[in-house]
Amino acid sequence: MIKYGFIGTGNMAQAMIKGLLAKGVSAKSIAVYSPRSAAKLTEKWGVISLSAQRLIDDSDLIVLAFLPNQLENVTANLDFKNKLVVSVLAGITLEQLIAATHTTQIVRTLPNVNVAINQGVTAFSNTALTATNNTIFKVFSDYLGSNFNLAETQFAIFSAVAGSGPAYVFKYIDALAQAGIANGLETELATDIATQTVLGSAQTLALSTHSAKELQNAVASPGGSTRAGLDDFDTQNFDDVIVHAIKATVEHKHL
């Protein structure tokens, strides 16, 4: 039985813990350390609250999930014993993680919030892991959703598309719902319709052998109402708006 430890219990750590629990991982196999919120999570989910060093000693995989600028202070007096360390610290490189933890078994990850429902998208880059640790990480990452091995230089664009992307999808769903409301639908009904439409369409694309462009054309008959809408998207430079927003996100993140 793999034992997981979380040093830091912010939003991403909690999303990951939810994902593990949803996959049937026992709460007793999950340890947390946080001066302020560990006890609350123990009460909420039944996970184990431990000191940071005891958590490291008892865990097979340790997740670093605190604020990036706290790295040196948090790790200063800890002995990671060459345990498998998984970082979700934005902007902190493998080189910096090795220097801070003094372990060679490190995976730098960039997950998105959908790990909470086992539909996450996670980028990762790692040092040379042992066969055992490679298996442990694969089990962990597969529990949380899809994962992609990327060079650290690609983390910024990944973060813009997959990390910030959920917010942009939510914005599109809201805009779709608002259009429905403007044309006579009740608010809750319009939101439900827009949400399910996006959910179903994403699943259709995921299960299809066709590209998103091909599926657009399959739905839109020549001269029909859907084609009129797609043509209006083109007139309004919809694709350029998305590209511009992603570029702004990448330039702001500086990962």
Rank of each mutant, 00 (worst) to 15 (best):
F124M: 15
T103I: 10
S51M: 05
E186C: 02
S146H: 04
K28A: 10
V107L: 09
T209R: 12
R227I: 13
Y33G: 00
A194E: 00
G145N: 05
L20R: 02
A15Y: 00
N147Q: 11
A194S: 11
I157W: 08
N11E: 13
A15L: 01
D57H: 14
N183E: 10
T132Q: 10
K253F: 10
T235W: 08
G8T: 12
V115I: 12
H244N: 11
F140Q: 05
Q203H: 08
W45Y: 14
L110Q: 14
I157K: 12
I246N: 07
G46C: 09
I17G: 01
A27R: 05
L144A: 03
A116W: 00
G224R: 05
K28Q: 15
N133F: 15
D192F: 07
Y33R: 03
T130C: 07
I98N: 13
S159K: 06
V107M: 13
Q96P: 03
G5Y: 00
H102L: 11
K138Y: 04
Y4L: 12
H252N: 11
I173R: 00
K83Q: 04
H210Y: 09
V169K: 09
Q14L: 07
Q14R: 11
I98G: 14
T101L: 02
A151L: 03
Q105V: 09
N133L: 09
A162N: 15
V241K: 05
A52C: 07
D234H: 06
A162D: 07
D57C: 12
K18C: 10
E43N: 13
T42C: 12
N149Y: 08
A65P: 01
L61D: 03
N147D: 12
L215Y: 02
A99W: 14
L20K: 00
A52E: 12
G145Y: 01
A175W: 03
Q96M: 11
T122S: 15
L84K: 09
G165S: 09
K81T: 01
F233S: 08
I246H: 04
S49F: 01
L71Q: 08
A128M: 03
D174H: 06
T42W: 02
T103Q: 11
L129H: 13
I117Y: 02
S164V: 07
A194W: 01
D234Y: 04
V115N: 00
K23A: 11
Q119G: 08
